[in-house]
Amino acid sequence: MFKKIKQRSLEKQTEKHLEKRDDSQLNTPLKTIGFLIHEVHFKQGDLFYEFYKELTIQPKDIKVFSFLESKKKLPSLKQNQVYNKDFTWNGILQNQNAKEFLNTSFDVLVGYYKNSNPYLDYMVASSNAKFKVGLKNCNPDLYDLIIGVDIENIADFKTELIKYLIILKKI
């Protein structure tokens, strides 16, 4: 029962963030990029750090943050993870590292996950990113650009992302 309440609260919070979104800086050139991934579908988050070469930015300007449904029993030194337990029943995020990631004003934020996920959708909607990119089968209200590639094919995604960023004169 609490799971349903939490998900409905997250959906309401997502809608509120979408209503408040400022899209006046959509055309800002790319200097920083953030990736928000679901580790169940894509475990190789470190591959995103290699994008800096083609995006003509510094490696320090790429940030990757991941989401897991539940915390693993094994201790982890990763600071860039958020779990469903980090959200209260009324849809408030409690993870300080995740809040810092979302408050970062990325020029581009990529939501790299399959389908709709209330936790990740909330994070994308509440992000201060200027331009948001998602994958096919996601909520189109959250993103400015949706790329239609399979999540397992990172090479095709990289090619398409760079192609569209060039077309949009971000790089």
Results as ranks from 00 to 15, higher is better:
35 F>H: 04
106 F>W: 03
72 K>N: 14
163 K>W: 11
98 A>N: 05
2 F>W: 10
9 S>Y: 05
114 K>Y: 00
10 L>S: 02
114 K>E: 00
4 K>C: 07
76 S>F: 15
33 I>V: 11
68 L>P: 03
105 S>F: 06
120 L>Y: 01
138 C>G: 04
46 D>C: 10
38 H>D: 05
121 D>K: 00
48 F>K: 05
2 F>E: 12
161 L>C: 06
118 P>S: 05
147 I>F: 03
75 P>D: 12
171 I>F: 12
143 Y>E: 00
103 N>D: 12
77 L>K: 13
143 Y>T: 00
65 F>P: 04
101 F>I: 09
26 L>Q: 09
155 A>Y: 13
2 F>V: 07
96 Q>P: 06
12 K>A: 09
114 K>V: 00
60 K>F: 11
42 F>W: 04
88 T>H: 06
99 K>L: 14
151 I>W: 00
20 K>G: 02
166 I>N: 13
108 V>F: 07
76 S>P: 11
114 K>M: 01
86 D>V: 08
153 N>T: 09
48 F>M: 04
17 H>L: 06
44 Q>G: 09
83 Y>I: 11
80 N>P: 07
9 S>H: 07
131 F>Y: 08
139 N>Q: 05
118 P>D: 03
2 F>Q: 07
113 Y>C: 01
170 K>A: 05
16 K>S: 12
85 K>C: 11
50 E>R: 13
41 H>F: 02
153 N>Y: 09
163 K>M: 12
130 K>A: 02
107 D>G: 04
2 F>P: 04
62 I>Q: 06
26 L>R: 10
42 F>V: 01
64 V>W: 07
145 L>I: 06
144 D>P: 02
63 K>F: 14
134 G>H: 01
99 K>V: 10
52 Y>M: 08
40 V>R: 10
71 K>S: 09
30 L>V: 07
64 V>P: 05
34 G>Y: 01
140 P>L: 06
165 L>S: 04
168 L>G: 04
146 I>F: 06
3 K>Y: 09
148 G>T: 14
44 Q>K: 13
1 M>G: 07
138 C>Q: 02
170 K>S: 03
6 K>Q: 10
56 T>H: 15
9 S>W: 03
